[in-house]
């Protein structure tokens, strides 16, 4: 379970300070898929980076399974599986070697890594390319490798930043099924997207972010009720105030 309270993060830029995240609060529960929906540049990636300890919030509090990532980064990192916006894989290693490298960095034993890698290769449908070097992989194959790598240590909480970015329809469908499986297994799944349909189809709870602020959140039904729109996509657009940067 992930709880975020009043997160703030400001970056210095040539034109002056930019408030990337400006008071974001939400909760992502176990056994649920929580979606962060927002146009590009809304602050989704920065919020996630603070969650997985890559960035320090200027203000606010994060609690992951009762722990503060700033105070206890190590156990928090162990409980998180992260697919960052940057999902580069090592092109001179095979997909399986990429997975094993991270397994070792999480302190796992060789045998446990091999067993877990097999399971992930099956679950993500990677059999055909698992033992090939990742150079020349398609976007979908790279993303699957990166997801398997992120989940090798069986994390309780799974954070995915725009996981379906650049994937074809079939791969996207497969990935959605995989996320539903994680939910059924009781994981806390948090993912971000700027694709309204995807969030509508998958999420138990939706957090709508724009300009670094949470503009609406709740279950799909609650969102429809809050905005008075019967169509979820219309509800999103109404909450954000514009459909710029969103994708149907």
């Amino acid at each position: 379970m992930i709880t975020v309270e009043n997160l703030h993060k400001t970056f210095a830029s040539k034109k002056g300070p930019v408030k990337a995240v400006d008071g974001v609060s939400f909760t992502a529960a176990d056994g649920q898929i929580t979606g962060l929906l927002g146009p590009n540049g809304a602050g989704k990636t920065t919020t996630m980076r603070m969650l997985y300890t890559l960035m320090r919030p200027d203000q606010g509090r994060i609690v992951v399974d009762g722990l503060d990532p700033q105070q206890q980064p190590d156990p928090v990192r162990r409980s998180l599986g992260v697919l960052p916006d940057a999902r580069g894989v090592y092109k001179r290693l095979t997909a399986r070697e990429n997975i094993a490298y991270f397994g070792k960095l999480y302190g796992m034993e060789e045998a446990a890594i091999a067993k877990r890698a097999d399971a992930l290769v099956d679950a993500l449908g990677m059999q055909e390319f698992a033992d090939r070097r990742t150079e020349g992989f398609s976007q979908g194959q790279r993303t699957k490798t990166a997801i398997a790598r992120a989940l090798v240590h069986e994390p309780k909480n799974v954070i995915l930043d725009e996981p379906t970015n650049g994937l074809d329809v079939m791969t996207t469908r497969g990935l959605r099924e995989f996320l539903k499986r994680l939910r059924a297994e009781g994981h806390c799944v948090l993912f971000s997207s700027h694709i309204m349909q995807e969030v509508a189809a998958l999420c138990d709870r939706i957090v709508v972010i724009a300009h670094g602020k949470v503009v609406a959140q709740g279950t799909p039904d609650e969102l429809r009720a809050q905005t008075g729109e019967s169509n979820l996509e219309d509800a999103f657009v109404k909450a954000i105030g514009t459909d710029e940067g969103l994708f149907a």
Binding site: P73, R77, R78, L83, P84, G88, L105, G107, A150
Partner: peptide
Amino acid sequence: GERERQSLEPLLATPA
């Protein structure tokens, strides 16, 4: 190079 190929971010998110 690792940063440019975008694999440094996931690496730094590990407990290492």
